[in-house]
């Protein structure tokens, strides 16, 4: 029995390992190929390690400040994603606290109403939102990428669930000691919400960094757009004939979230248990 179990575990190990290697092929191939010369890509057939390492694709793509200003796109995306993350964490923690630890009439009814309304699929909102952006003069601006998404309810739901699992005794004890609502929020509850707020921050950043449909609609000025919308243009412009630069651009685009993942893997992979209030 024990031997059979060991053999089975070894086989699972082997199998999942092989699949993992296959799984990562597109990323590894794109990475290596972005360091190959265009001639090597086109004449040497499929392969991984470059015969001759070159930075020409990166120099080429980063030097393009004209129809594909990728450094600008990268900067735009960074400003947008960082701002979204900071604002989302502040707003979500405040709001979730309100819907979980304050007592007011119709609190839960109101919250479920918000949840129900946000069930409406996004596609209905897109055209009216675009119109609102023209009213606000936010077309082709970062505001269009930052503000509308802050109305979302999903993250508030996550943090609210987590907050509801924290016993009421904490607040009551602090209030007996004379702490006001804000002191309870800042000193007692906020520190305990840290794991779930980390999850919110990470998903806000990656979600905003990778957002695709909305930026392709609300930006037409090449200088102002974020990276995802830019890459779509780039694919149209270079995609057919120049592979090196476009793969280099894709590698640049995935770099920030990849680095984030290296450092905060635990939060991504355990997001489900962290955000449902199950500790451990």
């Amino acid at each position: 029995m024990r031997r059979r179990e060991r053999v089975m575990k070894a086989m699972v190990s082997l199998w999942t390992g092989i699949v993992a290697i296959i799984w990562i092929v597109p990323v590894v191939w794109a990475f290596f190929t972005s360091f190959k010369t265009e001639t090597e890509i086109k004449t040497k057939g499929f392969g991984f390690l470059p015969k001759e390492w070159t930075f020409e694709n990166y120099i080429n793509i980063l030097g393009n400040t004209d129809n594909a200003p990728i450094i600008r796109w990268f900067g735009n995306s960074m400003v947008i994603s960082v701002t979204v993350t900071v604002l989302a964490v502040i707003l979500v923690s405040l709001t979730a606290y309100g819907y979980s630890r304050l007592d007011f009439k119709y609190r839960d009814t109101l919250f479920y109403m918000l949840m129900g309304i946000s069930l409406f699929p996004n596609i209905i909102n897109i055209i009216p939102l675009y119109q609102m952006m023209t009213w606000l003069k936010w077309v082709n601006t970062n505001m269009a990428m930052i503000v509308p998404g802050l109305g979302a309810v999903t993250n508030i739901f996550l943090v609210r669930q987590f907050s509801l699992s924290i016993p009421r005794e904490f607040d009551e004890a602090a209030k007996i000691d004379g702490a006001g609502e804000f002191a309870v929020f800042f000193r007692i509850i906020l520190p305990m919400l840290k794991p779930v707020l980390t999850v919110v921050a990470l998903f806000s950043f990656t979600g905003s960094w990778n957002d695709f449909l909305w930026p392709t609609i609300v930006f037409n000025d090449v200088e102002k757009m974020p990276l995802t919308a830019g890459l779509k243009l780039l694919n149209g412009a270079y995609g057919g004939f120049q592979l090196g630069p476009i793969l280099a651009a894709a590698c640049i685009a995935i770099f920030p979230t990849f680095v984030l993942y290296l450092f905060a893997q635990k939060y991504f992979l355990q997001s489900m248990s962290l955000s449902s209030g199950i500790k451990g």
């Binding site: 191939w29 695709f212 990276l227 476009i246 995935i254 990849f258 984030l260 991504f268």
Partner: peptide
């Protein structure tokens, strides 16, 4: 963790 534009290109 990657955007669909990067994934699509690859």
């Amino acid at each position: 963790l990657f955007s669909i534009s990067a994934v699509g290109i690859m």
